[in-house]
């Protein structure tokens, strides 16, 4: 990753028929970076991707991809990007190889270069063995991989991925996430949209959280976590009444707060490693059995909740 800018979005705005899908979007993505747009459905992620892919003209503002403007030089933009659409945009009645050959030609590849890239991409998306089967006969995961492979044919410097793991099994998702990392390791800049916080957390160098067409938080994972103070939640279920344990725990220096609701006790702590032995020791000494325990590290869900007042998956 370098400090050079790959994507520079400036006051991007899109509205149709009185509805504002994206408003005053500003962010930059550095070359070689994986940048994720995280947000619930309808947050404006796909509209943003459509504008960056030159499928939609912005109502106002502009974006520069490797210095090319989506408004003024869309053709130049299209030559440096590979777009993985949310839908599986492949031809079901053609084989993987036929699909790749066709799309390679659409990207301007020909001859030996085309044949080489088709073989490389088939290998990359692990479809070499099934390359002659019709895409319509593939599993969802294989179709998703082909969908991604098509966007990589012309070796774009920027790959834009719009929720590429929607509706697939965990194994296929793992392959795709590993593939994105491998791609990035080769120096490709990736703009990735998702509503799965785990993906954004695992893949991204930086994350922008979107809601209602706006970015409400942006930074690295740890920067975002700091927004909610970095507190860890320990949830305990006890067989007996806690008695004066709650007051005792509140008095501990590393405990931020303790609350009890419907028999479950929640401790917000800065460091779970040091506090958990104390909790177990004190319950044992008081003769109280712990029947359930859950430790929740601070996550993007909590950040989203903190910023919007609602859960990411709502």
């Amino acid at each position: 990753m370098t400090n050079e800018i790959a994507i520079h979005i400036k006051d991007l705005h899109k509205s149709y028929n009185g509805f504002t899908a994206v408003q005053s979007l500003n962010f930059t993505v550095r070359k070689g970076e994986i940048f994720s747009l995280l947000g619930p459905n309808g947050a404006g992620k796909s509209t943003t991707i459509s504008m960056l892919s030159c499928l939609l003209a912005p109502t106002s503002g502009d974006a520069l991809l490797l210095g090319h403007s989506i408004s003024k030089t869309p053709r130049a933009v299209k030559e440096v990007i590979g777009v993985v659409p949310q839908e599986i945009a492949v031809y079901d009645d053609l084989s993987a190889r036929q699909n790749l050959i066709f799309w390679g030609r659409m990207y301007g590849l020909k001859g030996k270069q085309l044949a080489r890239r088709v073989d490389e991409v088939l290998d990359l998306v692990a479809l070499t063995d099934r390359q002659h089967d019709r895409a319509g006969h593939y599993s969802g995961g294989m179709q998703r991989r082909l969908n991604i492979g098509i966007a990589l044919l012309h070796e774009p410097q920027i790959v834009i991925m719009d929720e590429p793991t929607v509706g697939i099994d965990p194994q296929s998702r793992r392959k795709i996430l590993d593939g994105v990392k491998e791609l990035n390791a080769r120096g490709v800049t990736v703009l990735y949209t998702t509503h799965y916080m785990e993906e954004a957390q695992e893949l991204s160098h930086r994350i922008a959280i979107m809601d209602h067409g706006r970015i409400i938080g942006e930074g690295t994972h740890s920067e975002l976590i700091r927004i909610v103070g970095g507190l860890i939640r320990i949830s305990l279920t006890l067989r007996q009444s806690p008695g004066n344990l709650i007051e005792m725990w509140r008095a501990l220096a590393s405990v931020h707060s303790v609350s009890e609701e419907n028999g479950a006790i929640s401790l917000l702590v800065k460091d779970s490693t040091s506090i958990l032995p104390v909790v177990f020791e004190s319950t044992a000494r008081a003769g109280i059995s712990v029947t359930g325990m859950d430790v929740q590290e601070p996550d993007l869900e909590a950040v989203f909740l903190h910023l919007t007042g609602k859960a990411l998956r709502d």
Partner: peptide
């Protein structure tokens, strides 16, 4: 329907 038409518009084809 399959959005391959839209995908084609993301290539440099006019």
């Amino acid at each position: 329907h399959s959005r391959t038409l839209a995908r084609m518009m993301t290539t440099s084809m006019t």
